[in-house]
């Protein structure tokens, strides 16, 4: 089968690799109809997370079940499914508590040794362990492109907003209007935000956030703290969602939150270190919550429901639809921020 392969820092290619196949009774193999390049793929692309040359990459995919192992009960060949980007056992204490990202046997598609050595989803076929837990049926009438992001980035943004204790009418600031931020905006509005402020410097991303219902604030032209203060009678935002995953974004989030407010860190971190003024955070009575990896299994049915109902629209985020063979170009565009979201079609 053809698959996107990590070649080294800043380089991927598309190569022939052995076909994905059912290896365990609970496995399914999915024929990918559309996959996507995710921001977290760039961590591997840049060598910030370990991936060995020759390993396959990618974890956002929608497709059709090709084959299943004998222990799979909920899916059969021919079913349309979306794939969970994080692979959970579904039975441990954390999984049963809805925190599947903390699973005792947590794995990740296309993340090399870090993810348990599973293959990537930017491929013609992908093996999905424990398929009954890690696949979600796509409802009839929902196109692949609408369903795709429910397995990762859409649900990540929705979850980030859901755990942020947004109260009706709150002013919510979203730091970063990339794909995660785009879905945080929609999630925040669905969870009762009175106003969502999108803090971003890229004009295209600002336009997308505005289209999703946010007030765009161009932080290349305005100081974020001052701009948010002006819209909140000087207080700052009630809730801030940090949707970037960079210390500067975290600092910005803490700059714009009001006293007694909360910051949810949705963006992904790996090895960054920051100095924390604990006394000031304590005096400001801040709630700072790290969302961690999205426990997608606990939230994806609700997220899919929002997509089906039309309350979350994922399509505006898609800027490029490329052949799988053009994945290197897709990575180049996405890495250079010349694409908001790249789809790869085998």
């Amino acid at each position: 089968m053809r698959a996107v392969v990590y070649e080294g820092i800043g380089s991927v290619s598309v190569r022939d690799v052995p076909d994905a196949k059912v290896e365990e009774p609970a496995d399914a193999v999915v024929r990918v109809t559309t996959s996507a390049i995710c921001g977290s793929d760039l961590h591997f692309f840049h060598g910030k997370a370990p991936l060995d040359p020759g390993e396959t990459i990618g974890h956002e995919a929608v497709g059709i079940v090709e084959s299943v192992g004998a222990a799979v009960e909920r899916f059969r060949p021919g079913d349309r499914v979306v794939v969970a980007f994080d692979i959970a056992c579904g039975t441990c204490w954390f999984c049963r508590s809805g925190q599947t990202q903390l699973c005792e046997d947590f794995r990740n598609l296309g993340a090399g040794i870090f993810g348990g050595g599973l293959g990537g989803a930017q491929a013609e076929l992908v093996r999905v362990p424990l398929a009954d837990t890690n696949l979600l049926a796509v409802p009839p009438g929902v196109e692949d492109e609408r369903a795709l992001f429910v397995g990762d980035v859409l649900t990540t943004g929705y979850y980030g907003a859901a755990i942020s204790r947004i109260r009706g009418g709150d002013v919510v600031a979203v730091v970063g209007a990339g794909p995660v931020g785009f879905f945080c905006v929609q999630g925040a509005l669905l969870h009762g935000a009175g106003e969502v402020l999108a803090l971003e410097m890229d004009p295209e991303r600002l336009a997308l956030a505005e289209r999703a219902g946010a007030v765009p604030i161009d932080v290349s032209a305005r100081n974020a703290q001052t701009a948010v203060a002006e819209r909140t009678e000087g207080r700052g935002a009630d809730v801030v969602l940090e949707a970037v995953g960079h210390p500067a974004a975290l600092e910005s989030a803490l700059d714009v939150v009001r006293r007694g407010g909360s910051v949810t860190v949705v963006g992904m971190y790996t090895s960054e270190t920051v100095e924390i003024p604990v006394g000031i955070w304590w005096a400001r009575a801040l709630t700072v919550r790290f969302a961690g990896i999205c426990p997608v299994h606990a939230w994806w049915e609700r997220a899919m429901g929002e997509v089906v109902a039309g309350r979350i629209d994922p399509l505006p985020i898609v800027s490029h639809r490329l052949s799988l063979e053009d994945a290197p170009l897709g990575y180049e565009l996405f890495d250079a921020r010349r694409a908001t979201k790249v789809l790869l079609v085998p």
Partner: peptide
């Protein structure tokens, strides 16, 4: 202002 996060030290 420092205690409120408006100025950072």
């Amino acid at each position: 202002g420092m205690m409120q996060g408006k100025l950072k030290l």
